[in-house]
Write a protein that binds this DNA or RNA. Structure first.
Lengths: 158, 158
DNA sequence: TGGAAAAAGTTTCCATGTAAACATTCAGCC
DNA sequence: GGCTGAATGTTTACATGGAAACTTTTTCCA
């Protein structure tokens, strides 16, 4: 009776109900998703957050920095740094509009447009159904559920 | 013709296909999930990662630190810091087994057990279906899809 | 056996992201 | 007009998490 109950195999752990915890599974899924992303963009130094920002600026030229931050759930302090880097890299243009000199309006430079055009396809393909081992229908379902989950959130409680 | 196409409303942005990007939606979902978590544990200072670690140690007393890290996809360097903090807080016990003095085996102290018992219910309840605005069936489906997604991952490519 | 290679953690340094205090500018009211 | 308060970003200081180099111990094999 000296054999311990647990840890018969040192590497097979009992997780209990953890795989039924949404928070835990979301974390694992995101790690997995990041792995896919960085496999696709192994050589070039494209980062998910940065590319998302460029994407949205491209679709909304002249967007206000704050609106962008709120929409993508990026904190203002962080957005400032992201924008500074992208401006430094010549991808984004900052403009202080005379109508409200507190705010900052963002648009893509030609280099930014080129960057977006170049990687747009890869970005969309990264999480295509077959790439992640789901059927087309499962993938749609998953996206629908995640959308619903996200929209439940209270919008900007102050 | 001086009215711009986009940005008619400064705060309503066109996201294009972004809501159909799994990576993006996973990020939003996790942010939403964190918000739920921290609303539940507003006063007490329970953190998701830390509690998960305590949970698994509780289920697998004597688990090796490395096995824990691999299972939860926490990097060894980070795990070291987590464990140091939990030991400092008196929740976890570290033990160097004489059979392999490189490794570290972890178990809960009585205080750790008490902590686990005390918050276990809340932890499970945080993401119950009705809390997150999904039906019971949707919640099950979502978890199943996330599980499938995660399991597709190549196991520990060296 | 004894020396090279692997395994397990730790340390150090860095990137990412947040919170709190701080300008600056605008809006509204007296 | 001029002051108060809100809105918008920025700065600073800190927390979180990861990569790479390092230490110690074990394994393996010549």
């Amino acid at each position: 009776m000296n054999a311990p109950f647990t840890t018969l195999d040192d590497d097979t752990l009992d997780l209990g109900d953890l795989p039924r915890s949404l928070g835990f599974m979301l974390r694992l899924a995101q790690i997995s998703s990041f792995a896919h992303f960085f496999r696709e963009f192994a050589d070039c130094d494209v980062k998910p957050g940065e590319f998302t920002v460029i994407w949205v600026i491209g679709l909304n030229p002249g967007v206000k920095q704050g609106a962008l931050a709120r929409t993508l759930h990026i904190k203002p302090a962080h957005m400032t740094k992201l924008v500074q880097r992208m401006v430094r890299d010549g991808l984004v243009r900052r403009e202080i509009p005379s109508e409200d000199r507190r705010s900052v309006r963002l648009s893509l430079t030609p280099a930014g447009e080129a960057h977006l055009k170049r990687y747009r396809g890869n970005f969309l393909a990264v999480h295509s159904a077959e790439r992640i081992g789901l059927t087309e229908s499962e993938s749609r379902q998953l996206l629908a559920l995640l959308n619903k989950l996200t929209l439940q959130e209270a919008p900007e409680c102050p």
